[in-house]
């Protein structure tokens, strides 16, 4: 009895400490957003006034109104969504396949080839941009969404690496069992490995979303017409040459964060599903 109580207190204290640490960190992570959201309702002169006010004295929707009128927000959103959705689909299909080939199957030289995959992540875009552009312009792709979407169907080293790391952890016995049941390799991939890899797939989906959502240089360089611009370019289209219009940027930041937050909440449920499905290794 005594022992029981002691244990409970211990875990209660432990829980309390962990909560406290998490809360403190969460607060630290959140404060800039507090500034972002409240700032987006402030007038430009109040935004920088000293002393600093936590809440706007005069709430204004003007910044949001300007974001929606000064740039073709919904057109940019539509363009962004097209690119984002195509990229997610491409990333999910191609990277899971490729990662499977790099983790669940043995073939000579596999790990050396995998090092080439890693190497392709390292070269910065600054030195590959010009040859890529020359290539795309010869192919007639410049000025279309193609350079921003098609390569997504041929794997991305970061996601291949990520998926591979997950698939390596899945016990071999699961595949063997399916093989004995007469499944072919693709069957094992699609009916055994993919369902287990849901958390990793969700990570890839989120990351490719983020990549496409935030990609600035790709749309800027490859889209020939500003009608095709994406939301990531909106920030630089909003600021005037002399006046950075910080208050508008804050409103834009808020607007760009909200849809992603919603999406993330949806996928968050998916993660929890992943948890309940756990016990893979049993």
């Amino acid at each position: 009895m005594n022992k029981m109580n002691g244990y409970k207190v211990k875990t209660f204290l432990g829980k309390f400490c962990i909560y406290l640490i998490l809360l403190l960190f969460a607060l630290a992570f959140l404060l800039p957003f507090f500034f972002l959201f409240t700032g987006s309702f402030k007038t430009s002169s109040e935004l920088f006034s000293k002393p600093f006010h936590w809440l706007p004295r005069h709430w204004t929707l003007n910044n949001y109104r300007q974001v929606f009128t000064k740039i073709p927000f919904f057109r940019y959103l539509k363009n962004t969504m097209i690119i984002v959705v195509v990229n997610i689909i491409g990333a999910l299909i191609s990277n899971s396949l490729i990662a499977y080939g790099f983790s669940r199957l043995r073939w000579p030289g596999r790990d050396k080839v995998f090092m080439i995959v890693i190497a392709t992540m390292i070269l910065p875009y600054q030195v590959t941009l010009i040859p890529l552009y020359l290539m795309y312009s010869k192919m007639g792709w410049v000025g279309t969404f193609l350079p921003l979407t098609v390569p997504g169907f041929f794997g991305n080293a970061f996601y291949i690496f990520l998926m591979r790391q997950f698939m390596i952890g899945i016990p071999k016995e699961l595949s063997e069992a399916a093989r004995i049941d007469g499944a072919n390799e693709f069957g094992i991939f699609s009916s055994v490995i993919i369902p287990i890899s849901k958390p990793a797939l969700a990570s890839v989906a989120i990351m490719s979303f983020m990549r496409a959502w935030n990609d600035f240089l790709g749309p800027l360089v490859f889209l020939g017409n500003d009608r095709l611009y994406t939301l990531s370019l909106a920030a630089s289209m909003l600021r005037s040459n002399l006046n950075p219009n910080w208050e508008l940027l804050l409103a834009l930041g808020a607007v760009m964060v909200i849809p992603v937050l919603i999406l993330f909440f949806v996928l968050q449920k998916y993660f929890i599903q992943g948890i309940t499905m756990g016990g893979v290794k049993g």
């Binding site: 992570f29 959140l30 804050l250 760009m256 937050l261 993330f264 968050q268």
Partner: peptide, 13 residues
């Protein structure tokens, strides 16, 4: 969600 949202903000912001 809290820990993730900082990565959602456009770089300039």
């Amino acid at each position: 969600v809290v820990f993730f949202i900082p990565t959602l903000v456009p770089t300039v912001v």
